[in-house]
Amino acid sequence: MLSRSAERLYWLARYVERTENTAKLVSVHMNLLMDLPKGVEMGWQQLVRINGVEQDFLEKNKAINERTVTRFLLTDANYSGSLLSSLTAARENIRTTRELLPDEAWEQVNEMYLYVQKNLDAVSNRRSRVLFLNEILKGCQRFTGLLSGYMSHHHPYRFIRLGRNLERADMTSRILDLASLLLSESRSDELRQYETILWMNILTALNALLMYRQHVRTRIHGDDVLDFLLHDQHLPRSVSYCLQEISDCVSRLPNNDGLPDKVTELTEYIQTINTHNATQLQLRGILDDLQNKLGAFHGHINSNWFLRATPEQEG
């Protein structure tokens, strides 16, 4: 397959995954805030913070509240990380790789895009926002499902899995950032009372609550949750599981020089992460480091398969 197509499929998958994650994050956060008493320190600003875009946000918005944050994260066409921007980028990528994918895949992404365009105003109202987010979550799942069911699991599909899992690992680490706020030494007694609810929401954001209950079988405890989301070998959104998927794709793709070693390195690094009794500062340090390593791994994929080698180099 063409290097250019491989690159676009990889980014298509990343953007669809990002679209889904953004929808999920906003949706879970809404639920969380409904459970918490008014005035505790968990507010909408945390959502902006874990995406690392506080500055961007503050340049455009005076107040940090439900309305401005959801608008920014969901429908701001000028913020490249918004749901709308991710979906638009996904659509552009699939438009240029249609020949490799089943028709339904294009139609699914196109339909979601048209839906978002038509319902931009729906996000300002909580009730219609819930419906909006559900529609997007379902759409992303349909997309993933139909590729899995309709597409040969060959190279093009592997680039899609590669993109999806790298994005997923990154998002899981960002959601753990949110968790790191919970470990803050200075958190109020009031917030401490709600800790279980907060951890449950972290699990829910990653569709991991049920699996946590089945596999960990203790009451919900911060250290266990962190460990589960980083290290579980079977949970589709744990960082370790994403790495297994990445490893599987990389080892089956042609011309993978040196990349399997890089995956092994990264996997070993993740295994050594120990979050037990970590302070907030330590955890943030660990997660920053993890995100940087994932970013560096993207760089390897990029230079290995996507950057066009000159004919001289390829003999």
Partner: peptide, 19 residues
Amino acid sequence: SDLVVKADNCVYMRTIEGL
């Protein structure tokens, strides 16, 4: 830009597996 003509006067496309 996906295609290249080499000195052997053949056309090649740039793929993940090379030309």
